[in-house]
Design a protein around this nucleic acid. Structure first.
Length: 613
RNA sequence: GCGCCCGUAGCUCAGCUGGAUAGAGCGACGGCCUCCGGAGCCGUAGGUCAGGGGUUCGAAUCCCUUCGGGCGCACCA
């Protein structure tokens, strides 16, 4: 957990608890510190304390060594029903909260919050857009898209939990040379077949033609290289790039593809019809994948609708001399003149649009349409540089709102033999993967209970399998690359989604069996294992706020794992249903509240809590 | 060549903006159900935090440098 200070702490009762302690410490510091300056860290496990105040920063003002300061401060601070104990330990002041009183305050707050405990209104003044997934319409979704979708959704949920108004959108890249490739391949090789005739899912059907195109291009490249007498293995990287450019310029297949794209831009009816037909197939496939993953959008944008507006914006800027014209006629944003980024071509020499052409327009449309204060782009880290260029280009155009754009960058997904490459068919397909993990979950359930009705089995397998997949994507830091081994697939044991679901189910089971009970006036939570649960409740909202502000769900996933681990220790050491009063009702009340934050946290991650599994 | 990122246990990763004895999951080995759900729990083994220098009371964390890897660098998306 992050250091606590007056800014990072969120939600009662932690805000009051912190304020109280900060004032005590400030007073004891004898003017060296104000309450606002107090920063507390988590006390290490072995100390048995909850929070720690390092005395090093006071050494200068006090002209004493930190250990001595700790001693003297400890003597100055009186304990009460918030701060239960203060102890000097070397240069640290270890602070223990008053357990029963604190637990009472937390439980009151959780029940008063009516299911909303964990949220806050810190970002209530924000109107944000989360643009995520944003696939190309020429191939099915793969594991990389799954990471994108799961991350974008979770960050949107997190920000929303802090009171922001959130618009979830998808920009569909339905225009460009990649689409033309699938279309060319379809024209040449399809012989009239359709997803209906082959029984394939639409996106997989179209994706197959994209791969076909690449095969044909590969054959052409081999022939050309042989003809030119070039041995590609003898080339250095830079030379390779040049040779590839030369080849693409010479390739008849590419010439046809470019011609098709120009016809498309010229609204050729035949080309447009094929384009619409193929896109429809793809969308049907995408919808099925999104549905199963539980991804929803408030709004779709289509690149084909907005790239023309982008061209107008660019030509206008060219007239105002904001942009330059290259020798061959391409329009260039002169970023190097204004900063350290390289210049960026924003319109091709032949006048056709690039990806950035529509991105410029879309950004403008989004900010105007929704009055955004923030616009998040959930896009892989390989586009970090592009994104800087986009932002700088918009600033050049005079769009001050570009400051509100933020690249929600995330690490790449690697397979054991390297990066996924969809052109080579070297991908983990999203639909296959979901089917795989759900199947594994089904086996795991059957091992435990074989007499489940078929529809219950299917529902649980879906929830458990997807939770494992989703959690795996969110457990690692956002910027960390993921090494994905399809052989090992995803796990159900250890730090996993099902581990969290299992704790939820265990608690639910206890609460089901508890019958009628009433919450105690003052809970009894003196034992370490029981207090650990109360403490989870106390810190939870601050962790959620931190995850939302850092746009990193792994802050939340690792907290939930730590706290459920603590629950499992409690579960082994302490009994609930046959405990004497007041322990029984105290523990029941804690478990009920703990289940509530677990439910809250799982929903932020978009994992379904299960009463039974 | 230039820019950005990374290198922590056999493997996969945490380590939260410099703090106490560097942690977890998996794998290995050994234990724990007459007891609220064993998808669980406990224990053992395993680390020169890539190497070197520096700043600091204090460095896995900051700076420099070497080595190793990834990504990117105007008409792909």
């Amino acid at each position: 957990m992050r250091a606590l200070n007056h800014e990072s702490v969120v939600s009662a009762p932690l805000t009051e608890v912190f304020q109280h302690i900060a004032e005590r410490l400030a007073a004891a510091s004898q003017g060296a510190l104000t309450a606002e300056e107090v920063s507390l860290s988590q006390a290490p496990e072995h100390t048995g304390a909850d929070l720690a105040f390092p005395c090093f920063p006071l050494a200068r003002a006090w002209r004493k060594n930190p250990a001595q300061i700790a001693q003297e401060m400890a003597a100055l601070i009186e304990t009460d029903d918030v701060l239960g104990n203060v102890e000097a330990a070397g240069p640290y002041l270890n602070l223990s909260l008053a357990r029963n009183a604190t637990a009472g305050r937390v439980l009151d707050q959780v029940s008063a919050s009516d299911g909303a405990y964990g949220g806050s209104d810190r970002q209530a003044d924000q109107v944000v857009m989360m643009e995520y997934v944003s696939p190309n319409t020429n191939k099915p979704l793969h594991l990389g898209h799954v990471r994108n979708a799961v991350l974008g959704r979770c960050v949107a949920n997190l920000v929303e939990s802090q009171g922001a108004r959130v618009h979830r959108t998808d920009i569909i890249n339905d225009r460009g040379i990649h689409i033309a490739k699938s279309m060319i391949a379809y024209q040449r090789f399809a012989d009239g077949e359709t997803p209906e005739s082959t029984g394939e899912k639409g996106d997989h059907f179209v994706g197959r033609y994209y791969v076909e195109f690449d095969k044909a291009l590969y054959a052409e490249r081999q022939a050309w290289l042989a003809e030119q007498g070039i041995d590609p293995s003898s080339l250095k990287d830079r030379e390779k790039k040049k040779v590839e450019e030369d080849f693409l310029a010479a390739s008849p297949l590419m010439a046809d593809t470019r011609e098709l794209l120009q016809k498309w831009e010229a609204d050729d009816p035949e080309v447009r019809e094929l384009w619409q037909k193929m896109n429809r197939w793809v969308y049907q496939g995408f919808d099925a994948t999104y549905e199963r993953l539980g991804i929803h959008f408030d709004r779709h944008y289509y690149e084909s609708d907005i790239y023309r507006g982008g061209r107008e914006l660019i030509l206008d800027a060219l007239e105002r001399d904001v942009f330059d014209k290259a020798d061959n006629g391409a329009v260039v944003a002169p970023l190097s003149k204004h900063g350290k980024l390289n210049d960026k071509v924003v319109l091709r020499a032949d006048g056709t649009g690039l990806y950035i052409t529509q991105d410029i327009n879309l950004a403008d449309i989004k900010f105007r349409e929704f009055g955004l204060t923030k616009s998040y782009y959930c896009v892989g880290s390989e586009q970090n540089y592009y994104f800087q260029q986009l932002k700088a280009t918009l600033k050049l155009l005079g769009f001050d709102w570009a400051d509100g754009m933020e690249h929600l960058s995330y690490g790449m997904v690697y397979l054991p033999d390297g990066k996924m490459k969809s052109r080579e068919g070297k991908v983990v397909d999203a639909d296959d993967l979901m089917a795989e993990v759900v199947g594994l979950a089904e086996n795991a359930i059957l091992e435990r209970s074989s007499d489940l009705p078929a529809d219950d089995l299917a529902r649980r397998a879906e929830a458990i399998g997807l939770s494992a997949l989703v959690f795996e994507m969110l457990m690692v830091g956002r910027e960390t690359d993921i090494q994905f081994d399809p052989e090992k697939s995803v796990a159900f044991e250890g730090k996993t989604g099902p581990y969290l679901q299992y704790v939820y189910a265990r608690i639910s089971s206890i609460l089901r069996k508890a019958g009628e009970w009433t919450a105690p006036e003052q809970p009894a939570v003196d034992e370490d294992e029981t207090w650990a649960i109360a403490r989870s409740l106390l810190f939870y909202p601050t962790v959620v706020a931190d995850a939302a502000e850092s746009l990193d769900p792994s802050r939340l996933t690792s907290f939930l794992i730590e706290q459920t681990q603590a629950f499992n220790v409690f579960y082994r050491e302490r009994r609930v249903l046959d405990a004497p009063e007041p322990q029984r009702s105290s523990r029941l009340a804690l478990l009920e509240a703990f289940r509530q934050i677990l439910d809250h946290g799982l929903r932020l991650l978009a994992i379904e809590p299960l009463d039974e599994m």
